[in-house]
């Protein structure tokens, strides 16, 4: 799927920490060799538990954390090698919306100014037209344009997330990275924002990189899904294939852990995962999931399984599938 890819990430590594005086060096392998691509106008979902490296991957794509190794390409733009002013200018092409609509908007700025700021910074449009552009953006995300003079605290969570969307859309980006954009919202508001995001994608041809721990939301919104565990992608496939036919034991456990909102008939058999993921500082040898895996073989504790195609572009890294 790399031919028409808008975003292509190859062997991305983000390590934190390093040598400390008088102490053993501790390196956190937050992202450890991740590759994926997102076709134009599509959505890639990244799922995983906290600490799996999904947010760090998103931040690395936006160049908001230092990259240890790897290439990131957005269309014709080599994001991973951009520096300083070139990087700043290119940011108009990739924007972000955040998880917490309360802390991601400046409480002392009027929401109109918040949405206008990227236009000023990136010098988009004529200065005299920018206020009108802001009002148009407000309409686009379903807010009344006369609300531009209010402050963030006068809005509800859902409305604030709409402001965040308007701000992200203001520079007409190709890619929007969404880090848990609906997990802080009530379910009724969540549905409104998800529908808005889909409509904007259809209207504007946006490409989303969608980070979430909510598998129901990911299944609804994403075209492709990557499952991360301890800094690596363990399974990656298109939406139908991944949910219908999960291959990796971790993916299966994750799917079976989701409570289903339907009547119980007592037939459900849940895969119980014990414990927590190991620390990304002292990575286990072999498969990183082996310690919690209900079906681990002896081999899994010694040899790291490669991420290989199991047919039709469905990638999974597990010795049991060989």
């Amino acid at each position: 799927m790399s031919e028409d890819a808008l975003l292509e990430v190859r062997d991305l590594k983000v390590h934190f920490g390093g040598k400390k005086l008088f102490k053993k060096s501790m390196i956190v392998h937050a992202v450890d060799g991740v590759s994926f691509s997102v076709p134009k106008g599509k959505t890639l979902g990244i799922v995983g538990e906290s600490g799996s490296g999904k947010t760090t991957t998103a931040l690395a794509v936006l160049r908001l954390v230092p990259i240890t190794a790897g290439d990131i390409r957005l269309d014709d733009l080599e994001i991973s090698s951009l520096e300083k002013e070139d990087l700043r200018k290119s940011r108009r092409r990739f924007q972000m919306i955040f998880q917490d609509p309360y802390s991601s908007l400046d409480p002392r700025q009027r929401v109109g100014e918040i949405v206008r700021e990227p236009l000023d910074l990136m010098d988009i449009g004529e200065e005299s037209e920018r206020d009108q552009m802001v009002r148009d953006l407000f309409v686009q995300v379903g807010l009344r344009p006369e609300l531009t003079n209010l402050f963030p605290h006068q809005f509800s969570g859902g409305q604030r997330q709409r402001v965040g969307l308007a701000r992200a859309l203001s520079t007409k980006p190709d890619l929007i990275v969404c880090d848990e954009p609906v997990s802080a919202l009530d379910v009724a508001v969540q549905a409104q924002i998800l529908n808005l995001m889909r409509k904007l994608q259809e209207d504007l041809g946006l490409t989303y990189l969608f980070i979430s721990h909510d598998l129901g939301v990911v299944q609804h919104l994403c075209d492709h899904v990557a499952v991360m565990y301890l800094g690596q992608i363990v399974e990656q496939a298109d939406r139908i294939s991944l949910f219908k036919n999960p291959q990796h034991p971790y993916t299966k456990a994750l799917l079976s852990a989701v409570p289903k909102a339907r009547a119980r008939d007592g037939s459900e058999e849940r895969i119980r995962l014990m414990g927590d993921p190991p620390s990304p500082i002292n990575l286990p040898k072999g498969c990183r999931f082996a310690g919690r895996c209900p079906v681990a073989l002896d081999k899994c504790h010694h040899e790291e399984p490669p991420l290989v195609d199991r047919g039709n572009g469905h990638l999974a890294s597990c010795h049991l599938l060989d």
């Binding site: 379910v187 009724a188 969540q190 549905a191 939301v217 139908i240 799917l255 289903k260």
Partner: peptide, 14 residues
């Protein structure tokens, strides 16, 4: 009804 319907439920066979 609205509360149940507005949540994207995880389907085994999407």
């Amino acid at each position: 009804r609205g509360l149940i319907a507005c949540v994207p439920h995880l389907e085994e066979d999407p």
